[in-house]
Amino acid sequence: MATPKNFAGLPNATAASLHRSDTVDPDAFSAIVRRNAGRMLAVCRRILGNEEDARDCVQDAFLSAFKNLARFEGRSTIASWLHRIVVNVAITRLRRRRWFREEPLEAASVRFDSEGCRIVDQAHSLRLAEAVFELHQRKSIVREAILDLPAGLRAALALRDIEGYSTAETADFLGITPAAVKVRLHRARLALKQKLEAMIEAGQP
């Protein structure tokens, strides 16, 4: 699978040029905003599913970055650092918004019988595979199912599967290990698969 090599960002050296004496150079910072805002907004939209909240998050993230620029140590690119901040802001907002109905991460699981064989509803799986074209046409239904996932699962799915960041980048943004990203991704896909199968079973799409 192809892995994106470089994502939106300025070289680390730019961070040093941001500071003139003890103050932040506003021109350099606005260049960083111009360069990274688009991708950060896209990530927030996928995680939050709401334009207004996504914009608020990006603004909060830039505000936080501006205040904490002195703490940026240059171990990663500016873009990576900003993405970490904005993903954190978005997940915090999502959890606050949905705290009352957050499902446990273990909600979606696969089942095996006493022989160790997978228990799968063949008919459900086949119908999902057959409905792919129709689901492509009716994106709002899929979006709704994605937006219904628990925050941690949704963020992993949004970054890796939808925005196309590599597993390593996703891990970096979420502050977890690549192995933990894979676990969340698997659970997110299973949960989404179950939701889509239930929708198809119920007659949608």
């Binding site: 991708r39 990006v58 830039f62 799968v120 999902l128 994106k139 899929v142 994605i146 939808i162 896909r189």
Partner: peptide, 30 residues
């Protein structure tokens, strides 16, 4: 059949969001 529907799930989630060319609409004059 699990693998087939698992792959289908990834494909539809990837195409679920409209990837418009301008992500910066009105944001911070970016």
């Amino acid at each position: 059949s699990f693998l087939e529907s698992y792959r289908a799930t990834i494909a539809v989630s990837r195409s679920a969001f409209d990837h418009s060319t301008n992500e910066l609409t009105g944001l911070l004059s970016a």
